[in-house]
Amino acid sequence: MKNNVSLHTMTRIAVFIILSFAIYLLLAGHNNPGGGFIGALMTASAVVLLYISFDLKTIKNVLEFYFPYFIGTGLIIAIGTGISSMIFGYPFLTQFFTHAHLPILGDVELTTALVFDIGVYIVVVGVTLLIITTIAEDDV
């Protein structure tokens, strides 16, 4: 493989920008534009950028994940938030929120919807990367 210095350098920087924006979108969700799904797609795009500019094998050595487990974990987290409201006698998927005062961040809204979104995030990251790597490995 050719050593493409400018691409590698740019990717190293860009991936961090994309990833932090992805996290921002995940946390901004449900009151503002954003959410688990869009954040996950952005995360996946960052990882795909790594796959393209480096090499599928190299990145696989660094990120040793088994993506089907992502799907299972995410689904269980997302369903779990729905079930947790049932345990307290509310209808399925009822959401709760509270305002907490944290040292640096100030007034923060904590919601159960965020947990649901994190579940969605994990599922979508798992599905997208699973699809993309499966197709990429398909040598013709």
Partner: peptide, 24 residues
């Protein structure tokens, strides 16, 4: 209100997700 109604689709969904871990 009756949360019982979610069980017919929630139970298979949870189990389907759990079974991903035990596929082998």
């Amino acid at each position: 209100m009756s949360n019982l109604l979610v069980v017919p689709f929630l139970l298979p969904m949870v189990v389907g997700a759990v079974l991903i871990f035990f596929a082998k």
